[in-house]
Design a protein around this nucleic acid. Structure first.
Lengths: 212, 212
DNA sequence: TTTGCAACCTATCATAGATAGCCTATCAGG
DNA sequence: CCTGATAGGCTATCTATGATAGGTTGCAAA
């Protein structure tokens, strides 16, 4: 399973990557009950160690979530790059990028929430300002990819691209966030809504090359 | 100030509307330190009573936030109605409605967060399903107003209106929510961003009457 | 006066994340 | 084969949270 430090010994946790095990267990518990409902004691019990022992592997409860969040967003980045390198018109690639973004948010609601919906003060405080928080880095990275894609598609001045990129990001985020935060709202068919939303966002760029 | 039970006596809190006083104090503390950072003990201390005494006036800590949220959204509804009744083209009224919505969110970030960004499970659970939660009612009410405005502007089939209303709401929410959740992000000039965002949303409807 | 009750109190609970200090199995060096 | 260092773990405990239990006070109406 793990290629790291498996030297054969197993007693007392040696040989198994405890940190990795904790992350896996936490991920499963988060998916099952929702991140906010899972306590460090639950995680520790599921792992089979005491609650304070978690702090030998992580500096804080938040660090566990942050690490998982970072990994999840790495997956989004990989998927995004694949989309951007795939064949198709610039508009289609951009459309699929938006689609991948929304799908990611809906597939990892807790991670998306942590990255873009929670106030940084709740989770970290100094780290954010220092730019050292992995969650922030993950979120920023995801946006940067989208901005690059838009820049390629438009080829306009930097300032204009930044403005439009932020506006488009807001629109895509809006649907993702609302579907996550208000799943019980009487939404129209989700698939139709997403398709319409992305189409509306892409609409101004259907003939972008000609109009600009 | 209050028309309720002010009989003249003041000792032991009689004569002053404690519930109202708690709400005012809580509102100020929320504005000062952020809702998540304010505890029931802080509120009680600021009011001058013990922490358990709060429960004589509110069933839970959430009820305090919910009441304040309800009042804030009542303000949004009033402002929205004013916009809708004001003169101007349908497009302009719709634009100003979006503007009022965003401005409201930025002016009352905690209330907006409570209504649209927090997961209902965190705050209430059964209440939501029963439709009795004032926060949910407030949020729903705000959206309903916008939907009506769009219906007036478009005059299309109900299903189409619902689809477009939800998509537009998502876009407007997206910018509001991101500006609230990530104030430190390197945004372009906020005013320019909001104007551009609303313009982009309204763009398809500039010649709506002709194209439909 | 006496009764009733609303408002308030202190004491306490359960749970959260987090820290302190001790114990022990393993491993490296003599 | 012993010995010391240490990584990993433990129990006990701390502070803070929202919330409950049950007693006390003082006004007001009967």
């Amino acid at each position: 399973m793990n290629t790291a430090g498996a030297h054969g010994a197993e007693k007392r946790g040696r040989g198994i990557d405890r940190r990795e095990q904790i992350l896996q267990v936490a991920l499963q518990l988060f998916a099952q009950h929702g991140m906010a409902q899972v306590s460090t004691r639950q995680i520790a019990r599921a792992v089979g160690i005491s609650q304070p022992s978690l702090y030998a592997h992580f500096a804080s409860a938040h660090e566990i979530s942050a690490e998982l969040c970072l990994r999840a967003f790495a997956g989004l980045s990989a998927a995004s790059r694949k989309v951007l390198e795939a064949p198709g018109t610039a508009r289609d690639r951009f459309y699929r990028l938006g689609r991948a973004y929304i799908d990611f948010g809906l597939a990892h609601p807790d991670m998306y929430r942590l990255a873009f919906m929670q106030e940084p003060d709740e989770t970290v405080s100094q780290l954010v300002q220092q730019g050292k928080d992995p969650v922030m880095a993950a979120g920023q990275g995801a946006f940067d990819l989208a901005r690059q894609a838009l820049a390629q598609m438009l080829g306009r001045t930097e300032a204009e691209v930044e403005l439009q990129a932020q506006s488009i990001w807001a629109s895509v985020h809006g649907l993702t966030a609302l579907l996550i935060a208000r799943p019980m709202f009487p939404w129209v068919d989700r698939e139709r809504l997403i398709e319409h939303h992305l189409a509306a966002i892409c609409a101004p760029y259907e003939t972008a090359a000609a109009s600009g």
